[in-house]
Design a protein around this nucleic acid. Structure first.
Lengths: 200, 200, 200, 200
DNA sequence: TATGAATGAGTTTTCATTCAT
DNA sequence: GATGAATGAAAACTCATTCAT
């Protein structure tokens, strides 16, 4: 007897709820301090249920890192067009977008920072993040190179510049640890833009 | 019976050894995964001895974070002169120095990143780091403002620029996770410099 | 709505399948290591269905031990005639038969050995086995006594001899743990016969 | 600072106590039903202490099976001389001895029976038992062959006879599950002797 | 001061059993 | 009747910390 649509829907919501709470707890308290019991309690399910949806704690962590990456983060961060007509406008809008994402996804990025910071401890999720960072940098290099060719940006080592830009995004996320940052995010696009060597 | 000088010296060395190994283990494996037994083994002492030198695990962590900060890190990072004669040279030398430190103190900075990334979990050591970052930024603002006044740097919001600079340093430390970075560190001073809005 | 004959038949087959797989798993892995989920999987049913046919795990174990006992084991082991004309032939054929059964029912006897070996843990199924062993020994005593009377066997304490004979059967089942035994079973009837004090 | 002799002695006694209680519990309740907590309670130590003396439950079980085997069982069972002057007396004394051991070591043998009965579950301890049984049978074959040569026993397949004898010992241990057996043990040497084909 | 045995709270995980669909 | 999601009790094992020697 297969499950009814309603049941499947309810289960999906439950899984999502567990994952969301796991992301928050993993981000704020770290891997070890986040107990399955805490996740269960925060999600309003019994702790046995967590194991219905995720094989074990490791898998839960893996999904907590990779699912937002693949569904939201990746898509949003790569949402710019290196072949746009007006590259200056495209770059500015890209920066706006990137900074907004790094501010909005504060909790998730805390998790990302942990995985990167202790990558030997989390090799599988780190691999996913690393792969994405390479893809992200490739696309950045593309838009930077095009912009340089069209004299929208000054000449620079595009690879280095792209890498510095990503480092900067991660760094400000780390530096501004709380909500306070949201009041100045408007400003952060200025140094971000500066890093790309704008024409004056 | 008072301890002889030799004994005191031996004890100090023992304490130092324990602290060094604790830093490495905390940095690479995180707070929870670092057990007192591991630290003791790595330091070549019995685990009971760890408690002779540090009240408990929490205190050991606290000292692992703050002692290098106060003895080395702070001194080295603040080793620049906002009133220097040749400010351009001073700034370039400062950047060289900062990047070198961030590369050399890779392990310690892994620890710093953890504390910042999970600051609610580690309020005391975070406070120390936060205090230092304020001090650091204040001094950066000073040199930037002076450099702007003397037309060595273009005008910019000095606070924002200083903060962006610190964020950049932390960010590249996070982005370049391994030794590979040492081969390109020479280059990283370029975007770091660019962040300060150099005159052209 | 009463069930059709076909349905009843199907259910009986399902129950039988579950029981057979339970016997194998209980025998090979023991009571605790045999999970309901494993039994269900081996039987090709959902684990909820196991509870449709057996009240709980305890009951499943009880039936796994007692059903083969009452349907096959008991009948086969008691299939000899203490009043047979040619008692020597009857005894030899009985021994052949017993050894064959102990070899063929290897898996089931692994289960029996567990119940006997840990009888305090399994009092109900042990009771059934114990009752049968008494019945078996009684009938053995009968044939032995008759054979002694008719000078087919030498005189001996019939009770002791019967008990020793049963012990021997269980013991060789335990001693020869694998299929290798099947190649020498032909021989095992020799010491079994010897235990009964044959006339020379 | 090395431990004092007194401490070492105390620790050895503690270890021994834990092992003894573990043997009893494993024998009576089986591997899974014997929890570390039960062993600790029965031994009068804290739960954590069991892990001070035995790496894990598996190791505890392994030692529970093999230590009595190597220190007592092996020595006692092999304590007969195939080259004795008066072989008939030697064999009778050997049988007396064997039966006495199988009765006295009732609890330990319950454990042995479990390991043999579920040898796939306990490969390491089973290996030790299996090795011993081979050694035991070899020595039995020796004494049987010598006795046959000296016309103390009738001719028979010595290998088969030795194996049957071991099977018988295990079997009666299994058949007589309680202390009741001690009242008839005097008698059991009769069928045991009979199994060796005594001259009449 | 140095050592490491002793302790037990806390964690992950398994699994029998219940029950809604 | 069949299914499998939900539950939580129970188990092995880890580890910070204490304290006797």
């Amino acid at each position: 007897m297969p499950l009814s649509d309603k049941q499947i829907k309810a289960m999906e919501q439950k899984r999502e709820k567990i994952l969301q709470q796991a992301i928050i707890l993993f981000a704020e308290q770290g891997y070890e301090s986040t107990t399955i019991a805490k996740v269960a309690k925060a999600s309003g399910v019994s702790f046995g249920s967590v194991f219905t949806y995720f094989e074990n704690k490791d898998q839960l962590f893996y999904h907590a890192v990779t699912e937002p990456l693949n569904t939201v983060f990746k898509v949003d961060l790569l949402d710019f067009d290196p072949e746009a007509e007006d590259l200056l406008a495209e770059i500015k809008s890209m920066i706006d977008n990137h900074i907004r994402i790094f501010i909005e996804m504060r909790t998730y990025l805390q998790l990302v920072v942990q995985v990167i910071g202790q990558h030997t401890k989390f090799p599988e999720p780190f691999k996913e993040l690393d792969d994405f960072s390479i893809e992200f940098i490739q696309k950045l290099i593309l838009i930077i190179t095009n912009a340089q060719r069209r004299c929208v940006l000054e000449d620079s080592d595009a690879d280095l510049t792209a890498t510095a830009y990503l480092g900067f995004l991660l760094g400000i996320r780390l530096t501004f640890t709380d909500y306070a940052v949201s009041r100045i995010w408007e400003k952060l696009k200025i140094p971000a833009f500066q890093l790309l060597y704008p024409k004056r």
